[in-house]
Write a protein that binds this DNA or RNA. Structure first.
Lengths: 262, 262
DNA sequence: CGCTTACTTGACATTCTTCAACCGCAGTGG
DNA sequence: CCACTGCGGTTGAAGAATGTCAAGTAAGCG
């Protein structure tokens, strides 16, 4: 695992003019959770104006280190993960475009897990003070961030159910359903198709399966005609059956305050 | 699963004079997280003055229902759990004396999981408004509650590592280590011994193991001389080895603000 | 072209589950 | 007092799910 080359943009990082490439995932996500004013949106746009490009498999925050600033993912897949003494990696959560890491970092002396990229990512580093100010001056943003933490908790609970009591194929189906909905919410997925920049090892470290077993589970899903997966693109071929297999119900991802926009 | 007999104390509930039986676990826990004033402590004592006794295996909040009020556990074991369509139960988190459920409930339309007791419990029902007031008027309590949520998150992550990548015996060892520390923090455990009012089925539903396998794992731990467990009392016979087996490091449970008391 | 990384496949071992039976104890009712 | 019952725990045997090891293939890249 590489580690992040200090604070400045990596040498191969292009200009910062990329931030209008597509609907801003952070704003889009928070708008779904609370009603934001034009000033709120402007503040969010300002905060995330200078993205940095980070290569895949790069640590943004190493395990056990203090967290110097928050990170906002604009593009790509990142994750929180732990490495066990024997070397095994457990991926705890995925961070997708629009997801924020380190909101509560000032309260935590050292991060109990690492934050790293799984694909090449576009990331914004946000100093704690900036985030603090944002929250103090924009109560609706504070509310949206709070709600987003509650959704994260629900996702974690759902993953616990998967790891604790679902079979390999059910876990995989559930993960795909969840990723599809989460990516759709920030316009990074079509109805039944999205880019999945993960290796089979990544999937295994997420779902508690060996890479070999992941491979066989994927083949099983393909053979049943539920998905297609090749070239880092996942296609859901039979959503009803996939969701049934996963016992998937998207409601846990759709927490919204009564005032929230679409 | 029984369900809670409405809002009033159960018929067999004794007097409320019981709340001085032992160091108040809620106050004790929050004091560990932030520096509380005498007024803070008095307010906490007032809020939790009227406990209710609840029998084992009783639902306080059913899955999918709105949460009408918060619940504070004073004695006994409770848990958040989910029942899967096929009937399988996954226990998500334990609530021990001093633990609070429903802090964010006003923001969540319906609880995605149930809250139920695993043993007979002593519980306080706290209306949302009372909790809100407590938080508004006592910033240090608000801080402590926030930190306590962060610890809960760390516990959840730790459980995810267990279910995702540890063997049955490692999971069990880790759970015992964690429970010992958490109970010690609220004076419900001696150095190496504590009451464990759980059945082997409960343990299995927590750790993602069948009851039969739980039984064998327990025998293995006993055979290795690491624990004794009988009559609902768990004794840790060889802590270093048990912690090594579990890869246990208590630091994730010891988050504290710089100003916190011991 | 050779190297690396990801994926694939087969054979085998291990972990864990399922099913079924049995034990022991506590509560309950006759 | 005793039979009955139910729950929690224990045991054995068989099988399913998953891991490990090892080898081989395919695609991307310098």
């Amino acid at each position: 695992m590489k580690s992040l080359p200090s604070s400045n943009p990596a040498p191969w990082s292009p200009s910062a003019a990329h931030n209008e490439s597509s609907p801003h995932p952070f704003i889009r996500k928070l708008q779904r959770l609370a009603l934001l004013s034009a000033a709120d949106i402007a503040a969010l746009a300002r905060v995330s104006a200078t993205p940095v490009f980070v290569g895949q498999n790069t640590d943004l925050v190493p395990e056990g280190q203090p967290v110097e600033c928050a990170f906002l993912i604009l593009e790509g897949f990142a994750c929180r993960y732990r490495i066990r003494p024997g070397g095994a990696r457990q991926i705890l959560t995925y961070l997708l475009p629009g997801d924020l890491f380190g909101l509560d970092a000032p309260l935590v002396p050292r991060s109990p897990h690492a934050l790293g990229t799984l694909s090449a990512c576009q990331v914004v580093r946000i100093p704690h003070e900036v985030l603090l100010l944002l929250i103090e001056q924009h109560p609706q943003i504070a509310l949206a961030l709070h709600l987003s933490k509650l959704v994260e908790e629900a996702v974690l609970h759902e993953r616990l159910v998967s790891l604790g009591s679902r079979s390999g194929i059910e876990r995989m189906a559930h993960l795909f359903c969840e990723l599809n909905v989460r990516l759709q919410m920030v316009s990074r997925a079509a109805a039944d198709q999205f880019g999945l920049p993960l290796t089979q090892v990544d999937l295994g470290d997420t779902l508690g399966l060996s890479n070999v077993h992941v491979n066989r589970v994927l083949q099983d899903l393909r053979r049943q005609g539920l998905i297609a997966l090749s070239g880092r693109v996942l296609t859901i071929l039979n959503r009803p059956q996939l969701e049934a297999l996963a016992e998937f119900n998207a409601s846990y991802l759709h927490l919204a305050s009564p005032t929230a926009g679409g």
